[in-house]
């Protein structure tokens, strides 16, 4: 599926899968398209804006029990200068289905505003893997929303890799609505130049015996900024909840900065919860260890940063994508090698 400037442009589906009921389509071409788009369960000014200006929406419907072996890929590209893009993606993973959906966002070198919404509905006992790679140009201002609902005994593995944009925000709201549901939320973000990455997450435990595990790791360089604020909310009915939240940040330049704000809101006693957050420079002792082997400082730093991200990259739902992402990170880190400050005294 190709989405250009927020508008569905081109769709190709394996006929064999389509025959078995897999739907990848523009909502406008579906009889129940309007109903589908009104299912959105979260609201803020930017979701209202998205709904008001929606030029079309991508619907992925995986029928009950279907196992889709290969990833379903949605490519978003912005190439209109001065445009505002309002994309919507709705993934409906039927009961006991199993699938992987990848969204890749890129842009030409244009000034643009992007307000995409992703809805993931994971049916009972379904397994859904979702990866979003954001590699927008440095003049794109993005406010994104990723809302998920996880059913009974279902598992969602949702990952974000954020590399670009000017100001780029992603709100992640994962609601665990069915007993025994699990949500794994991971992110890798690297902000250089004058970018700002802004992540706001909610792990919302509504049903009993639900699990959420969040691991967001980021690095900021040059004059870039990042903010992570996360909330674990455990409702009155959500007994036996396990909820974990970890956010770690590396600050690679003196002019860069990262903030991390974890929060808990717990209304029942029977829970296991933890949160951890850290913001700091590369550890001097790690750098010294590698340099004492003869590794030049910029290479040592690159190894440490990639190692830091490795824990998340290794968990990404599409292992084939990891090598490419590593290569991109190596290139981006090498581009800023001139600004490396030697930690030795």
């Amino acid at each position: 599926m190709v989405v250009r400037n927020g508008r569905p442009a081109r769709i190709e589906v394996d006929p064999a899968l389509a025959a078995r009921g897999l739907v990848v389509a523009d909502a406008a071409d579906l009889p129940d398209g309007d109903d589908l788009l009104s299912r959105l369960h979260v609201a803020d000014a930017f979701t209202d804006l998205n709904t008001a200006f929606l030029p079309g929406a991508t619907v992925v419907r995986i029928p009950r029990g279907m196992v889709v072996e290969r990833p379903i890929v949605i490519v978003h590209h912005l190439d209109g200068d001065g445009i505002a893009s309002f994309a919507r993606t709705l993934v409906l993973a039927g009961e006991s289905s199993d699938a992987t959906v990848i969204e890749h966002q890129s842009s030409s070198d244009v000034a643009a505003f992007s307000d995409p919404i992703v809805e993931l509905e994971v049916g009972d006992a379904a397994q859904l893997r979702y990866l979003n790679v954001q590699d927008l140009g440095s003049r794109v201002f993005q406010v994104g929303y990723q809302a998920s609902r996880v059913g009974r005994d279902a598992t969602l593995r949702s990952s974000v890799v954020a590399l670009g944009g000017d100001y780029a925000r992603v709100r992640t709201d994962s609601r665990l609505e069915g007993k025994g549901g699990t949500s794994y939320l991971t992110a890798v973000y690297f902000a250089d130049g004058g970018r700002m990455h802004d992540f706001r997450t909610i792990q919302d435990h509504i049903a009993p015996k639900t699990t959420s595990d969040l691991l967001f790791k980021g690095a900021v360089s040059d004059n870039a900024r990042s903010v992570y604020s996360g909330l674990i909310r455990v409702g009155k009915e959500a007994r036996g909840t396990n909820a974990f939240q970890t956010n770690r940040n590396l600050v690679l330049s003196e002019g860069a900065g990262a903030e991390s704000v974890p929060n808990l809101e717990i209304e029942t006693n029977d829970v296991i919860c933890s949160h951890a957050s850290a913001v700091g420079p590369i550890d001097d002792e790690q750098r010294y260890y590698l340099e004492s082997r003869g590794i030049p400082p910029e290479v040592a730093e690159r190894l440490i940063v990639l190692g830091f991200f490795g824990e998340v990259l290794d968990r990404l739902p599409l292992s084939e994508a990891v090598a490419g992402l590593r290569a991109t990170l190596v290139r981006r880190l090498a581009e800023r090698a001139g600004s490396v400050q030697d930690g030795s005294s």
Binding site: L290, E291, S292, G294, L303, I304, L306
Partner: peptide, 29 residues
Amino acid sequence: PTWERAQAGMFLAMQYPTEVPGVSLADAM
């Protein structure tokens, strides 16, 4: 700088070798 001392022919086997998460011995060598 430390790395140039190493390249010049020095090596230090550390008393408490530092943990470097995510970096393998093979990659470091």
